[in-house]
Design a protein around this nucleic acid. Sequence first.
DNA 1: TGAATAGTGTCTGTCAGACATTATGGG
DNA 2: CCCATAATGTCTGACAGACACTATTCA
Lengths: 277, 277
Amino acid sequence: MQKKDINGLTEQEFLDKYDPTMFERLSMSVDTVIFSIDTKLQTSNYRKLDDQKLTVLLVKRNEHPFLEHWSLPGGFIGVREAPAKAARRVLRNKTGLDDLYIETLGTYGEPDRDPRMRIISSTYLSLLDRDKFKLQASPYVADSAWFEVEVTDRELVLCGEGQQLVIPYEKAAIRNGKIKTVEYQVTESNPLAFDHGKILLDGLMRLRHKIDDTDIVFNLLPEEFTITQLQQIYEIILGGKLLAPAFRRKIAPKLQETGRYVQEKGHRPSQYFMYKE
Amino acid sequence: MQKKDINGLTEQEFLDKYDPTMFERLSMSVDTVIFSIDTKLQTSNYRKLDDQKLTVLLVKRNEHPFLEHWSLPGGFIGVREAPAKAARRVLRNKTGLDDLYIETLGTYGEPDRDPRMRIISSTYLSLLDRDKFKLQASPYVADSAWFEVEVTDRELVLCGEGQQLVIPYEKAAIRNGKIKTVEYQVTESNPLAFDHGKILLDGLMRLRHKIDDTDIVFNLLPEEFTITQLQQIYEIILGGKLLAPAFRRKIAPKLQETGRYVQEKGHRPSQYFMYKE
DNA sequence: TGAATAGTGTCTGTCAGACATTATGGG
DNA sequence: CCCATAATGTCTGACAGACACTATTCA
């Protein structure tokens, strides 16, 4: 099609003359909120079940700004790289894993979120099966570790590497036209780098919401698992207790029996199940 | 804190020396998917109810590339402007409205999505009350108009300005770890500019999902409305019929009676309701 | 046998689907 | 009275909450 614009140019002529520096440009990064489940072995009593904790992957910065602060794994988006690809690259570099569940979380771009310059961050949410995962050392960061996540009404507490990072937050009601929505606001001064406290909190809330209209939890579990393990994950993520009979009924259609049972516990052995469909 | 990095610099020294051109930069835009409801007056039979249609706002480009193609309203993000602010600015410029429901939709950044240069787009979803809305002419676009949205299994059809834009799509199952998710793929050659066909489709699916776990529909309606109007909107967005008694029961807790009734129709008058809480 | 957990049975109240019925206004 | 839509009544089956009960293993 040889349509001409107001300057009498065809599309090809226009593109040949186009000056990409006409508009000011900026940098873009990706940051990833990577959740997993950590099983705490119960050595005190062989009869007790192992405790499960929700964990999130953090890396310790070895550069300014926020030198030695913990942060979400992230990196710059290449000039010829799609954002989701960049997120997968970051995950691959930090964890050695491909082919993860990855989902867009949001765009964070307050002008002052990075003291160096204007950087807009596209963020992603991911969930790892703890059995397949192997944390690798990376030259880009001082350290990386899983932090246990505990949430209350007012704060998010991250525990790991002998440290405890406390991120206070507030639930704010935002009015959008006639309806109200809730937004989580994190105070400026929190131990995480940049606005990563806010991103992490948003990721957690997204996870809570996603858990009961998708099957993402199964990406947190090994191939075979017991219903109790599964229920514990729901409880950890949703932050409350669930009744076993109701839970079993609801989850049953998604489960496949294996006929194999947990051994060597001082109580009735539980069956291993697999994800079905 | 006067921590020094591997080059022996404090944070202030590091920032003073920081060269923002060290990493290649790119441009960012926002694009907005703005839905509304259009009431078609039923002039043929005074007894019939007015028909309601889901509509989306499109603008006609007056520049290369995609000269004279219809596209979603959008614009570049300023270097000191937050993305959500940019989306609100775009909406304000096109519609004269502030204070809308606005929600992040996703980030679109395939390297070749814009033939001029690398542009990553942050997209937003919005819903307008048709009563408060006034479409304004803008010097930045050749035309702007509401297009009626019709969806089938295979295509999205947009009707407006005497034109019919057909956007074929396919539902693709994407495997993410153990679970499957659905993704909507739009063919390259469709009448909308850039990847706006895909963005619009994603926006519609998000809207469908949002409709039954938030109260966003009420932002599409005037202050007072009948339950049938409300039900029609659900039907339009979800793409199917609902049973009146069940719908009334479910929606009742969110409604406030007004005691006022629709006049001058040849059937039992329906009561006007308001959104409650 | 008792501790600890796995798993089932069942009562009850709520609620959605389905369909029938009544209400109302204007020609 | 008929048309067209508004609004309610009610039967039924599915299902979640709640709690009691049975099953299994090992020290």
